[in-house]
Design a protein around this nucleic acid. Structure first.
Lengths: 224, 224
DNA sequence: GCGAGATTGTGAACAAGTTCACAAACGCGC
DNA sequence: GCGCGTTTGTGAACTTGTTCACAATCTCGC
């Protein structure tokens, strides 16, 4: 357990382990070996052990891992041991899917407020919440103290929203808009791009995709 | 341009480049250097050139890349040069957000059919489409010939849907359900997990997250 | 208490992906 | 046409992440 920086892929997998553990707990399983984790998560036993080793020693040789104990530890690591409020910006289709997403609760993630800039929407109910004016985001978050924000607005408005979120004190942004966000170095951004995911799948769906060599070589530009 | 297998990260970035290029094209820009791409995409110029080198040579030394030409090439590589039909399964919140997602069109991705198993929903309109019975998916895709599918159903139903999609001829699956899918080797799966993304952000939002060493060590399990 | 069997934690070997740096290619002005 | 400034394409160095393999640790039955 050297005091290195934790690789991001490790953090991503931590969330997967947590899900498996919660399932196991639900099924009344008390103990889990790294071998069994491999079966349930698709992630190799060695990888699982290595990932945990960044944070300490959680298992018992010859036995495995206490399901309850490890759940608690991973939750603590990921700061999911107490409720994490989240600011959602954008009361459109994606925002709607998010407030209705049932799986947040098990991870103690809660959308604590919804914002939009559309005057028609402001004041209307949205799930359990009332849509608030994006202009009031700083003021509202002074109460809530959320560190996480979600951007679910069209691309052209995303940067502006990101600035507002940062101004309101958010340090982690989940961005659904297909744009690169410019943020201060202390703010972490993760992008969710359906297009990107589908593009990768599209490539693989037709294996032999190969652009013929020297395509765009001749002449200024070849029209399509 | 050695005939190596293309790294997945490269494919992911290709979609980003494409977006930047489409924006540039919209702005009437004819030519783009790797340097400028770095500015607009946040991906290093060297990385951009290396990525393209897997597929051929598309730039002109001393000049840069033809925007139009490169768009065409990347679209061809990603099989987005002709319309890609997609089967969507799950007419819930997420499905609803997807059929309403405006950015698909620019990438020639089109949700060609929607399926659900809820008898109340089947037959109802959903965006431009009518919700169909999941039982008919094979039959319907015999017409459509889609190779891509999206799973937007609760976790407990996801595996069953995956099997149905594979049976219907799909070879690429975008999975929104928080589960590991078991699929034949020729089928590619990509998972979109809001929880995972937020968990990573949650960790970073409170930098000093460190589970104390030797936590779950003593005794069978320590209750939470 | 002790040996057998299981499983962890981790340094070391390996693999994959990124960055560097530079020769080769190109356009432009004269 | 020739030299200059620019930009590409790519092998080589480097960095990051994964897999391996094994000593150390633990349980359990007798």
């Amino acid at each position: 357990m050297t005091e290195t920086r934790v690789p991001v892929p490790t953090l991503e997998r931590l969330a997967i382990y947590l899900r498996v553990l919660l399932d196991a707990h639900e099924s009344g399983i008390q103990t889990l070996s790294s071998q069994e984790m491999e079966q349930h998560s698709g992630i190799s036993a060695a990888q699982f052990r290595k990932d945990l080793s960044y944070f300490g020693e959680f298992g018992k040789p010859g036995v495995g891992y206490s399901v309850q104990g490890l759940i608690a530890c991973i939750e603590r690591i990921l700061r999911l041991d107490e409720e994490q409020p989240i600011l959602l910006v954008g009361a459109g289709n994606i925002g709607s899917a998010l407030v209705g997403y049932p799986n947040f609760r098990a991870h103690r993630l809660r959308i604590a407020a919804v914002f939009d800039n559309n005057f028609v929407k402001i004041g209307r109910p949205f799930g359990d919440l009332i849509i608030e004016d994006i202009a009031r985001i700083r003021e509202v978050n002074a109460q809530i103290g959320a560190r996480l924000g979600i951007i679910a607005v069209p691309a052209h408005a995303a940067q502006e929203v990101a600035d507002a979120l940062v101004d309101a004190g958010v340090t982690g942004i989940l961005n659904f808009a297909p744009t690169i966000l410019r943020t201060p170095p202390h703010v972490h951004v993760r992008n969710v791009s359906f297009l990107q995911e589908l593009a990768v799948l599209s490539y693989h769906a037709v294996e032999d995709a190969l652009c013929v060599n020297g395509q765009a070589r001749r002449g200024g530009d070849d029209g399509v």
